[in-house]
Design a protein around this nucleic acid. Structure first.
Length: 362
DNA sequence: CAGACGTGGGA
DNA sequence: TTCCCAAGTCT
């Protein structure tokens, strides 16, 4: 590999990255072509906001279909603010991090109530809205309003850490990275610059096996000059996930309906729909016992669902029972044919599939 | 600052 | 299979 001597390292120029972006940018449903930007056409701030919230810790591939569904049903932030809350949660089901959906609704309402249905155009005002933090406020200000803001997400952190060979681990290195980003963020085309940084991080300056040969900053990159960009950024070692146990109870009545209930508004899967479950605990005893069912029935063990959350692994024992007398004290009865449209998180769909589907998980 | 907070896909 | 993660925010 040919290394650039330290003495020849040059400043990473925004113009070089922007030229790369003009040729190699990704086309995404929420974007406007950079050529249109030059003509003064900006993307809809509602689209930018919605996509940025969906993209938080979530892959582009997963977001596309959800984004199209949302703008089809709720074309403007005013429509979303007026939407039925349950319908929004149902539309979000499966995307994960459900606090985002709760904050999405709150944010839409505040945009209507506080800002007359128009997104504010400053980082400060944007960051005052629910679910909009440092990253998203800067991204909306830059992309939708072409303001010079410091847009720093995981991609940008990786690019910056490599270009400047920052060996300090995250998250301690964030202020330093922000200063480096400030030094290279241009006054001109800040929105395209932000998206270019993220596209570069996603397609060229990737976490593993970065394609440095295609990088417009190849000759400006200290990590490349040193010979091994891949390990950047350095991160504190992660902790192992504890295991929690529980049981889920899938009841089917003689009309072919499943008993569902609503989870509390806060915390894990807050506001979403579930089948009755025990608490999920680290205990090895009793947590998976059919005695813990919401009501007595001929509960039969149907299998196990393992589901990995961000901070723990869940092992759910799945029980199934046919119920003659359908009491609704514990929730409501939903026809099996309607389950697809419910606000059911993936772990709950897995539990139901094990109980009434043909397939059994291990 | 560190922990809570989901999911599906790729190596 | 197992690990790592992907455009973070809130407390």
């Amino acid at each position: 590999m040919t290394l650039t001597p330290r003495s020849q390292l040059t400043r990473p120029e925004a113009s070089l990255l922007l030229a790369w972006y003009d040729r190699h940018h990704r086309e995404l449903p929420w974007r406007v072509d950079p050529k249109m930007h030059a003509a003064g056409i900006r993307p809809d701030p509602y689209f930018v906001w919605l996509s940025e919230v969906m993209l938080q810790q979530t892959t582009v591939q997963a977001v596309k279909a959800y984004f199209l569904k949302f703008i089809s049903v709720w074309p403007t932030v005013v429509d979303l603010a007026a939407a039925d809350r349950e319908e929004v949660l149902k539309a979000w089901a499966g995307l994960g991090y459900y606090a985002r959906a709760r904050n999405l609704i709150k944010c839409a309402e505040e945009v209507v109530d506080r800002f007359g249905g128009k997104f504010p155009d400053t980082v400060e005002e944007l960051a005052s809205l629910p679910g909009i933090g440092d990253y998203t406020s800067a991204a909306i200000a830059a992309i939708a309003f072409n303001r010079r803001a410091l847009v720093m997400d995981g991609n940008v952190e990786r690019v910056i850490s490599r270009v400047f060979a920052i060996e300090m681990p995250l998250p301690a290195a964030k202020p330093l990275m922000r200063a480096c980003l400030d030094a290279i963020t241009p006054q001109d085309r800040p929105g395209d610059f932000a998206q270019a940084m993220m596209d570069l991080g996603a397609t060229v300056c990737s976490p593993r096996r970065p394609a440095c040969v295609f990088c417009p900053w190849r000759n400006d990159c200290r990590a490349f000059a040193q010979g091994d960009p891949e390990p950047f950024p350095f991160k504190a070692p992660k902790k192992e996930k504890p295991v929690r146990l529980g049981a889920a109870f899938v009841a089917l009545d003689d009309a072919g309906r499943v008993l569902l209930r609503k989870r509390g508004e806060k915390g894990l899967l807050g506001g979403m729909t579930e089948v009755p479950t025990t608490d999920w605990t680290a205990r090895q005893d009793g947590a998976t016992d059919p005695e813990a069912a919401p009501f007595a029935a001929d509960w039969q063990e149907k299998g196990m669902v393992t589901h990995v959350f961000t901070h723990f692994q869940l092992r759910l024992t799945i029980y199934f029972a046919k119920v003659m007398e359908a009491s609704d004290d514990h929730g409501w009865w939903e026809p099996v044919a309607n389950l697809e449209g419910q606000a059911l998180p993936t772990v709950m769909k897995k539990a139901i599939a094990v109980a009434i589907g043909e397939k059994r998980q291990k």
